[in-house]
């Protein structure tokens, strides 16, 4: 492996951001509005239910924010290889004096890590906006951190489910939930590498179709087998199931990242119009 230069990687990150600052400002504004508008709308439309249903209102708003966050992170990941979606962009990016790994890492730093930071800051700003909005009107909706509460809500659902004893495997389930987010992002990074244009929509369609195909061709025919062996399945240790899920998520994430990297490293300036290989 060629020497990895952090300095060059950071220069690449700087280049990605500073060569089109207006675009990044627009992204930040859109993210902020994506949180602020639904939050204010949902709270405002149910404020007459206060204080009896305040917790429900906040939970709804939190769910909405969590859903928006998930969609935005997938959208950002699907933009990872935007720099490769035209001949001139490929020529420009591929001839930059940096290793393939440095270029790949710089894209991940921008579209995954930096995006999450901007996402979080935009959410905080939107949350402050809704708080001030209601404060001005004499309604105190209160500060909240719906992302965290939603995650804990997910854990509580898992904890109460039939398959898990209460309180056990909490950290495995937490890890499963967070790895699920990383899996989603990795999937859309791979989608961005495969589909030159409309990567977000095409990735969803591709995996939806593939998922339906797997369901029809593999899982449904095994339905009878699963029912006959339900007692056996119920006896499998919950921790084992959690570990298996964690391993599957890690394997999927690794596979997506490795495939994306390989496709990028092997890319040439002239490719098929719509597919990235």
């Amino acid at each position: 492996m060629q020497n990895f230069s952090l300095r060059r990687t950071l220069m690449l990150v700087r280049r990605i951001i500073t060569t089109d600052p207006q675009r990044w400002r627009n992204y930040a504004l859109l993210i902020y509005l994506a949180y602020a508008i639904p939050s204010i709308y949902l709270l405002n439309s149910t404020r007459h239910l206060q204080p009896l249903y305040l917790n429900d209102m906040l939970a709804n708003s939190a769910s909405a924010a969590n859903t928006i966050s998930i969609i935005l992170s997938m959208l950002a990941a699907s933009l990872t290889f935007k720099c490769m979606n035209s001949k001139t962009k490929r020529l420009d990016f591929l001839t930059l004096p940096a290793t393939h790994l440095e270029k790949f890492v710089s894209l991940l730093l921008v579209y995954v890590i930096l995006f999450q930071i901007v996402n979080f800051l935009a959410f905080l700003l939107a949350d402050l906006t809704q708080y001030l909005f209601f404060l001005v009107q004499g309604v105190n909706a209160g500060f909240m951190l719906p992302l965290f509460s939603s995650n804990f809500s997910g854990i509580s659902i898992a904890r109460d489910s039939m398959l898990f004893t209460q309180g056990e495997h909490i950290w495995q389930i937490t890890l499963i939930l967070y790895l699920a987010t990383i899996c989603r992002i990795a999937t859309f990074i791979l989608g961005s590498a495969i589909f030159r244009r409309q990567a977000f929509v095409l990735t969803i369609l591709f995996f939806f179709v593939t998922g339906m195909g797997l369901l029809t061709l593999v899982i449904l025919p095994l339905d009878d087998v699963l029912i006959l062996n339900l007692d056996f399945i119920r006896k499998i240790d919950a921790g084992t199931i959690c570990n298996a899920i964690i391993l599957a998520e890690l394997a999927w994430t690794t596979a997506c990242c490795w495939l994306s990297y390989r496709m990028f490293a092997k890319a040439s300036v002239i490719t098929s119009k719509n597919i990235g290989f």
Partner: peptide, 30 residues
């Protein structure tokens, strides 16, 4: 496409895109 080779090579293609920044900023970034 090693960096040590690409540093010694520059191509001005027939068609290219330049970002919406000043020449000075472009030079500073690249």
């Amino acid at each position: 496409r090693r960096p040590e080779t690409l540093q010694r090579l520059f191509i001005v293609p027939e068609e290219f895109e330049l970002p919406p920044i000043s020449i000075r900023q472009y030079a500073k970034t690249h």
